[in-house]
C-alpha cells in the first residue's frame, strides 16, 4: 500500500501497523463487517414479513391455513438452530438442484444419488460451476438470508401472534359495531395497535439475530468472526510479510467493541420507536406519556 512497507526495520512501529492494517487480507476483514450489516439489513425485514404472515395465518378462520401457521411456528421453534443451519441448507441447496435437474436434463439416465455422492447434470448446478466465485458467494449469502429469515420468522411469528391477542378485545368489538368487515378490523384496528405489544419481544429477537451472525460460516459465508480467528492466529515470517504472535485476543476484543456499540445503537433506536408507538395507547406507558404532556 505505502512505499515504506517493504522496509524490514519498521517492525511493530506505527508505520508497520499502517502497512499491516491495509493489506488485502485486512481489507477482506473490513469488508466482512459490511457483509454482516447487509445480512442484518436484508434478513430483519424478511423475517418480520415471514413472522407477520405466520401470525396472520395462525389466527385465520380458515382451518388449514391456521394449522399451517401454527405448525411452522412450532416446528422451527423446536429445532435447534445449528441443526437447522447444517441440515436444512444442504437439503435446500440439493432440493433446488434436483428441481433444476428434472427440468433442464430430462434425458439424464444416471441416478442422482450414487453412494454418498449427489450428482446432477452440469446445467442444473446452482450456480453453474463455470460461474465466477462472486456468484457462488452471492448464492451462499442468499441461502443464509433465507435460512435466517425462516428461523427468526418463526420466533417473530410467535411474538406477533401473542401481540395480536393482547390488543383489547373491546377495540375489535367496537370496530365491528361500526360495521367494519373482518378484514377492515384486522388492518385498521388490530395491526396498527399490536406493534406496541410486540416490540419488547421483537427487540429481543433483533439482539439475538445481531449476535447469531457467526453461524454464517457454517453456510460458507466468511463473516467477521471467521476473519478475526484467521487473522488473529500466530503467523510465522516464512509465509507473510507481517509475522506476529497469537493476536486473537485483540481481534476478539475489537469484535466485542463492535457488538457492544451495535447493541447500544439498536437500543437507542428501539427506545425511540417504543416512545412513538406508545403514543395514545391504552397501556401504562401510554397513560404516563399522556399525563406528562398534560
Amino acid at each position: 500500500m505505502f512505499s515504506f512497507c517493504t522496509d524490514p526495520s519498521l517492525l511493530a512501529t506505527p508505520a508497520w501497523f499502517a502497512c499491516y492494517l491495509t493489506t488485502g487480507k485486512l481489507m477482506l476483514f473490513y469488508a466482512s463487517f459490511g457483509t454482516v450489516l447487509l445480512l442484518l439489513a436484508i434478513t430483519a425485514p424478511i423475517a418480520l414479513g415471514f413472522g407477520f404472515g405466520a401470525a396472520a395465518a395462525a389466527r385465520s378462520r380458515i382451518l388449514p391455513l391456521s394449522w399451517f401457521g401454527k405448525i411452522y411456528i412450532a416446528m422451527v421453534r423446536g429445532v435447534p438452530d445449528i441443526v437447522f443451519f447444517l441440515f436444512f441448507v444442504i437439503a435446500l441447496d440439493q432440493g433446488i438442484e434436483y428441481l433444476r435437474h428434472k427440468i433442464k436434463c430430462p434425458d439424464w439416465d444416471e441416478p442422482i444419488r450414487q453412494g454418498s455422492d449427489f450428482i446432477v447434470c452440469a446445467a442444473a448446478k446452482m450456480p453453474l460451476s463455470t460461474a465466477p466465485q462472486a456468484w457462488h458467494e452471492v448464492y451462499g449469502f442468499a441461502l443464509a438470508v433465507l435460512t435466517f429469515a425462516i428461523v427468526f420468522g418463526a420466533f417473530a411469528g410467535n411474538v406477533l401472534f401473542g401481540a395480536m391477542r393482547a390488543v383489547p378485545q373491546a377495540q375489535l368489538e367496537t370496530a365491528e359495531a361500526y360495521g367494519m368487515t373482518h378484514r377492515q378490523t384486522f388492518w385498521r384496528i388490530l395491526v396498527p395497535q399490536m406493534w406496541i405489544y410486540a416490540l419488547p419481544g421483537l427487540s429481543n429477537l433483533w439482539m439475538v439475530l445481531v449476535k447469531a451472525t457467526p453461524l454464517l460460516f457454517l453456510l460458507g459465508v466468511e463473516d467477521i468472526v471467521y476473519w478475526a480467528k484467521e487473522l488473529g492466529g500466530a503467523k510465522t515470517a516464512r509465509f507473510t510479510d507481517y509475522p506476529h504472535g497469537d493476536w486473537r485476543v485483540w481481534y476478539f476484543l475489537g469484535l466485542l467493541i463492535f457488538y457492544l456499540a451495535f447493541t447500544r445503537v439498536s437500543e437507542i433506536v428501539l427506545d425511540r420507536i417504543t416512545a412513538r408507538l406508545t403514543h395514545g395507547q391504552a397501556t401504562a406507558a401510554g397513560e404516563a406519556q399522556r399525563k406528562a404532556a398534560a
Binding site: T23, G24, K25, M27, L28, E230, G233, T236, R238, F239, T240, D241, Y242
Partner: peptide, 18 residues
C-alpha cells in the same frame, strides 16, 4: 482449507497461496 501453511494458506493479499 486455507489454514495449513506451507500446504495452503491465505496470503497477505487475501488469496489462497502455498
Amino acid at each position: 482449507e486455507g489454514a495449513y501453511p506451507p500446504y495452503n494458506f491465505i496470503n497477505d493479499a487475501g488469496e489462497v497461496d502455498g
